[in-house]
Design a protein around this nucleic acid. Sequence first.
DNA 1: TTGTACGCGTTATCAA
DNA 2: TTGATAACGCGTACAA
Lengths: 320, 320
Amino acid sequence: MSTIKDVALKAGVSISTASYALNDVPNVHPKTKERILKAAQDLNYSPHFSARHLKTKKTGNIGVFIYGFSGPVFSDILEGIRQTLQSFKYNIVVSSGKASESFIREKQVDGAIIFDANLRTDLIRPIADKGMPMIFLDREDTGTNMYQHTIDNEGLVYRLMSEIIDSKKYQTYGFLSGPDDSYNAIKRYAGFVKALNDHGINDHQFYQGDFTIEGGHQVGQTFIAQKIKPDFVYCANDESAIGFSQALKAEGYRLPEDIAIAGFDNFFMTNYMNPSITTIGIDHIKWGQQVATAMIDILRGFPHDLKETPVGKIYWRASC
Amino acid sequence: MSTIKDVALKAGVSISTASYALNDVPNVHPKTKERILKAAQDLNYSPHFSARHLKTKKTGNIGVFIYGFSGPVFSDILEGIRQTLQSFKYNIVVSSGKASESFIREKQVDGAIIFDANLRTDLIRPIADKGMPMIFLDREDTGTNMYQHTIDNEGLVYRLMSEIIDSKKYQTYGFLSGPDDSYNAIKRYAGFVKALNDHGINDHQFYQGDFTIEGGHQVGQTFIAQKIKPDFVYCANDESAIGFSQALKAEGYRLPEDIAIAGFDNFFMTNYMNPSITTIGIDHIKWGQQVATAMIDILRGFPHDLKETPVGKIYWRASC
DNA sequence: TTGTACGCGTTATCAA
DNA sequence: TTGATAACGCGTACAA
């Protein structure tokens, strides 16, 4: 591959002059600059990332580290992040699993956006201390260069449950959770419990799911065998709700007459299901854009309080 | 951040000895090595990616470049790639949009897996020529260090359509396509047309979709107004099929009695729809694993013919 | 077994 | 306006 040396040679100038021209430093004679750019073009020159990084300490990359590539939520958040980063000439790097820690430790990214409970705060804190800004979407840990940008899980579920309870349509309540180390699952459960308590309901059922359709389906199947069957079950995400409802329907239960449900995410399929499923929607693309904007502000040294988070909305549908 | 220099200093050895120890070069006294590793540990040392890359010409990263983060297909392929790369100590880098070309041009990755028609072959060919292996999942371009690993779109659709036609249940046929520059859409259409021709059917309707639910929905709505309505429409992917069928059902059409359909991808929702949708399934996780394995073999200089591609399967359901 | 010295490709400092 | 040179952090040939 051609280097700046080749470009300089071909243009008949020194390496430093070539560098000036290529980086738009103003003190280069237009004629010279033109010659250099032409040479670069001819040689199909691109600066070597690592060499530049070694010198400038800047990568132009922002990493997004997630716990898995599946799910409608991540796709939209990623798309929002991508759009904003691209408009500011930053590159988006998405990774998952063990690779994520490498990227952070080896400083292949200027900043990290983290939505992966497996990426433990204590392991990456030293890197944040040394100057890499990190925005967490899934926890509230604080520290130098550590920021949070979370949605109001608790408040939104509280609002939905309060309206449900006020409607007095149901007697007993259940909660179908996600993985027990999931920030979203924990917060949504907190909102659920608080709503029940505030309305004088002291009892509820708890079901362990895993945020997947299959997991919801399994819970639905064991649900049938249990003696206490709530007539309203709040599912901590839509995929669980879909699996859960399918299992019940397969056993002849009618929704919402026998059992009513609601979910979280406004996954588009909730609108197409029968019955359509009541859910809480966040504009994930916008969330991604906000997070990316915050990261860019931080990297440029602008103040950013990260207070502006996406507003959620309840979508009342046929399932309750 | 601490460098190898700090480690050497702390351990009381020279930089090179520290480097030997950290890279498991055998000629270091065990006692010395121990001291060095301890120092590295204490200082929370990690080698600087770019410095190492500059020297070794290896990044340990493999890039996957896709045209968007949405869709069930990509998530599974990515997960498969991730699993395999991780087990071979490679890092997965996923990117999209303009950033993708940067990663390739600046050589931030050792190899590229490409599923993005926007990433034009002629722009990246020079980098392949210079030694970066590229595996295309969405085209058949050839050249130095360029490989293909595609699924049998054409053959699978041909098989499905042949069985449909042989069943003699339908009189007229339509094809709901994806974006017209999509490799998958083109190949699937070719299989569709060939099956019709081989069975003496010379006429069919063509509808332009975009592989999204919304796109399928729109086609469904305009479909209603047209005078020629095929009684079987093959949809080039499941998301189109879902949108299309929802639009028809909303207008009172019965599936499959009035209009029968089938799709491609075995997107899990096809099984939950009413009616459930006949489709063609590829094991996308396995596909990802095979692609990643091929890439690793290529990078290690092992022969790999990339002939082993995932086998597809037809899932006959209620929609036709 | 350990240390010295060099170069990877780039940018930045300084002098011309 | 341009050029020589040092430095970024690392790995390694070679010398000791």
